[in-house]
Simulated assay, not measured.
Amino acid sequence: MDGAWWHDLRSGDIDELAMHLNAFQWRYDQLGAGYFFGHLAEIDLPHVTVFRERLNHSTRQSGSLPPGTIGLVVPWSTGGAMWMNGVCMTDARIALSDRAEVEFCTASDADYAFAIVDSAIIEDALESTGARMAPHLHRKLSIAQLPGASGSALRQLFTIAHGSLGEVPDSLRADTARRLLADQFTMELVEVLSKAAPAEERNGALRKRVVDRARDLMLGHLDEPLSILDVCKHVGASRRKLNYCFQEVLGTTPLAYMRAIRLNGVRRDMLACGGKGEGVYDIAARWGFWHFGQFSADYKHHFGELPSHTLQRGKDCLIRR
């Protein structure tokens, strides 16, 4: 169901969720294996957009927010862990992005809320209240410790918007009600931006540097994947340490992560292949899958369908265009 201010999307196609966020520069990769299902609800308020998303499999999401906005993310439930730029999220933490790239990893059965607010509105509110954005939040992605009662206040506002996921909130049908809720979100975000303290994450930056070096190396050899021992040698870490860093930063192992990223790359290329005349094997080989039988089995396990079916869907979409 869609309205002028309320939207509800339920999909088994992970890329459809990304396309719905068309104002974002956003990408999803499915990390967990099996049929995917996602539910994304959106409420458009004056200068504020409020979302809630529920996913049945772990994902990696990356990109940037719409220009001229500041965003915040809070866990809705504690059913599955979330990692934002390598830091594990908890109920007492919030992620804030001010003109910064975001990397967001979710565990299975993820449920979280996020909002974006026009930067100009935030700047006006800061000026009118005599407050200033905390320096550690300016023009970056930060994980912050929620000040005072801000955690419960934000959750109350998100509950008004999306307490019953997938149902139009009757309390917001009036324009005045939506305007008041937007004002409340703005003022609460000003409170957070001016008073939130940095979330302490011991050794978090070091772990993320190890993971980033390993990923850069592995992504540079997609057509001929490196062994995990080669990766360890180049980044100067033991296999145990590398596994630990990946688990802490991304919630998965190096091998599982790279296999998932490569499988997602194959899937995305097959859906976008159009009239290039490439077959499944051509695309799979480009992503470093040389043992076609094993690739086909891994692909079906990960996405719940054969690669040939995905390729056919890509061709069918081209014909419908």
Rank of each mutant, 00 (worst) to 15 (best):
L193W: 02
L250S: 01
S171A: 14
A161W: 08
R155E: 03
L17I: 13
A110M: 03
K300M: 10
T59G: 01
S11L: 01
A33Q: 06
R262I: 13
K300E: 12
D109I: 04
G130W: 02
G32N: 00
H138C: 02
H57V: 10
R132N: 06
D298L: 11
I261W: 11
L141F: 14
D175Q: 12
E101D: 13
E191A: 14
F303C: 04
H162A: 01
P254W: 06
W6S: 01
G86A: 06
N85M: 01
L206Q: 07
H162K: 09
L31I: 09
T59M: 13
L55T: 11
N243S: 15
A285G: 09
S194W: 04
E191K: 13
I121T: 13
M82G: 00
V211D: 07
A205T: 02
F24A: 02
E200W: 04
S58D: 05
D216G: 14
A144K: 02
S64T: 15
L157D: 08
S97Y: 07
R93M: 01
L165P: 07
A144E: 00
Y244M: 14
S152R: 15
G38R: 03
L242Q: 06
A120P: 01
T69P: 01
H39S: 05
W5Y: 07
S142N: 03
P75L: 02
G251D: 06
Y281K: 13
G204N: 01
V73E: 05
L96F: 00
K276T: 02
A33R: 05
H302Q: 10
S62C: 11
L263I: 06
D212L: 10
G38Y: 04
R213K: 14
S128M: 12
T59N: 10
W290P: 01
T159H: 15
K315T: 02
H47K: 13
I319V: 12
R179F: 07
D269E: 15
L55Q: 10
F303V: 03
A272I: 07
G38N: 03
A134Q: 09
V74A: 02
C245K: 11
N243R: 15
R240T: 12
V235S: 05
R99C: 06
R320I: 02
A177L: 11
C245Y: 15
P169D: 10
R286V: 08
C88L: 09
L126F: 02
F24D: 05
L217H: 09
K315N: 05
H162I: 03
L271E: 09
C273M: 15
G293S: 12
H309T: 15
G288N: 15
L263H: 08
V117F: 04
A81F: 09
T186H: 10
H20S: 07
L181N: 09
D8N: 12
R60D: 00
H136I: 02
H234S: 12
L65C: 07
G130T: 02
G304V: 08
